[in-house]
């Protein structure tokens, strides 16, 4: 089966663009599987967060999928076009990566020195 992933890309100080990637997939594969395929076969510079891959334990792969906030590891790929964008209410870092850490677990928010 064939899917198109239309992905919002960019960094905070630049205009974002939408790039579309065509991938082949098998029934049951996740959006995160598709993103990892794109990095491996087409463009390794595509940025997105994930850690646990499949278990929905790390909660890092949250993004906007066709306008709804969801986890890329549990959302399934579908035929036709799926639009992926960074989380709308979080600060953009790059592509699908946003600042999702709690404020007191960030480098910047920590007191600089004891």
């Amino acid at each position: 089966m064939k899917a198109s992933l239309a992905i919002h890309r960019g960094q905070p100080d630049a205009t974002s663009r939408v790039e579309t990637f065509a991938i082949e997939f098998e029934h049951g594969q996740s959006v995160l599987d598709g993103l990892r395929m794109i990095r491996r076969d087409q463009d390794p510079s595509l940025a997105f967060r994930f850690s646990c891959i499949n278990a929905n334990a790390c909660k890092e792969c949250m993004m906007s999928i066709d306008g709804e906030v969801d986890y890329a590891c549990t959302a399934r790929l579908k035929e036709g076009t799926t639009t992926l964008a960074p989380l709308p209410k979080k600060a953009l870092i790059r592509d699908l990566v946003t600042e999702i850490a709690p404020p007191d677990e960030r480098l910047e928010r920590s007191p600089r020195k004891r």
Binding site: S51, A57, C58, K59, E60
Partner: peptide, 19 residues
């Protein structure tokens, strides 16, 4: 001691324990 606990991903989310 004072401690810095550093992780390459989110604190307490990556790694094997949570899995």
């Amino acid at each position: 001691s004072s401690v810095i606990l550093a992780d390459r991903s989110l604190i307490g989310r990556g790694g094997a324990t949570v899995m």
